[in-house]
Amino acid sequence: MARGDPLILWRRLDRSGHDACRIWQQDGRCGLEGVAVWLDNAGPAHLSYHISCDERWITRSARVQGNVGQKALSLSINRNEAGDWHIGGEEMPDLHGLQDIDLGFTPATNTLPLRRLRALGKDSAELAAVWLDPSDWSLKRLPQSYRKTDAGWHYASSSHDIAADLAVDADGFVTDYPELWIKEDPNGRS
């Protein structure tokens, strides 16, 4: 039996919620798609996401749709070949040149730089991502660093005082993001 697209199911650790995601590849493109559901401060939330990348795992577009409490979201985010980012057709000049999208409500988007770094044979990188900030659902620049460790990858964002040692599987999915996300055991054990 041939192996299908890599799939994962995460459980939130900081509040009730789950996220199901798959990596897809087709016709020189690749990316992620999934659905996150959680109990947000605003009420029940469900967001679907679809991210399209080029063959180097550089983000080309992202769609996010659903609701967070009573707030409906329908976002179309695009990056052109020149590195210009647009949301709903509006250019975001402060984000020019960034290669990754970071959807702040899911661990899925850590997969994008991790797959690219692995493919390039790099053990560390200082970069910035286009971050969809779930506090106000706007796009912002998010400085980040990744450093390979014996157990996975060390992730940090000094501007948000975040640092974590991430366990990562062979597909580039985070399997343990301490205090935030963990891969669900397929046998139902915690």
Rank of each mutant, 00 (worst) to 15 (best):
N187Y: 13
E90P: 06
A42G: 12
N80M: 08
M1T: 15
C30A: 12
H18D: 13
G4W: 05
L9P: 02
L95W: 01
P44F: 07
E179M: 12
S74V: 07
R29N: 10
R56S: 12
A119C: 01
I51Y: 04
R15I: 01
H18S: 11
H18P: 03
W10C: 06
V174R: 05
D40M: 09
Q70H: 13
R79W: 07
D169H: 01
L180V: 14
D150I: 15
N110C: 02
D54S: 09
R56G: 10
N110L: 02
T106N: 02
A42E: 07
L95H: 05
R12I: 10
V130T: 13
E179A: 14
G43S: 05
G43I: 10
L95M: 03
A170I: 11
E126V: 14
D185V: 03
W10M: 04
D123N: 15
L73V: 11
A167S: 15
D27M: 11
D54Y: 02
L139Y: 11
L39F: 01
H96W: 09
E90T: 15
P113S: 04
G69K: 07
L127M: 13
R29T: 03
A36F: 00
W181R: 02
P107Y: 00
E90Y: 05
P178M: 06
I87G: 01
D150P: 01
L39E: 14
G104N: 09
D133K: 08
L75N: 00
G172E: 06
N67Y: 09
S16L: 08
P6T: 02
L47W: 04
H86M: 11
P113T: 07
E90A: 15
D84S: 07
P93D: 08
E33L: 05
D136N: 14
I58F: 07
G152L: 08
E91V: 06
E90K: 12
W38L: 08
G28P: 09
S48P: 05
D185A: 11
R12C: 01
S157K: 08
D19N: 07
L13R: 13
E90S: 13
Y155H: 08
L9E: 10
I87H: 02
H154V: 01
I101T: 04
G34Q: 02
D176E: 10
L127A: 13
S76A: 15
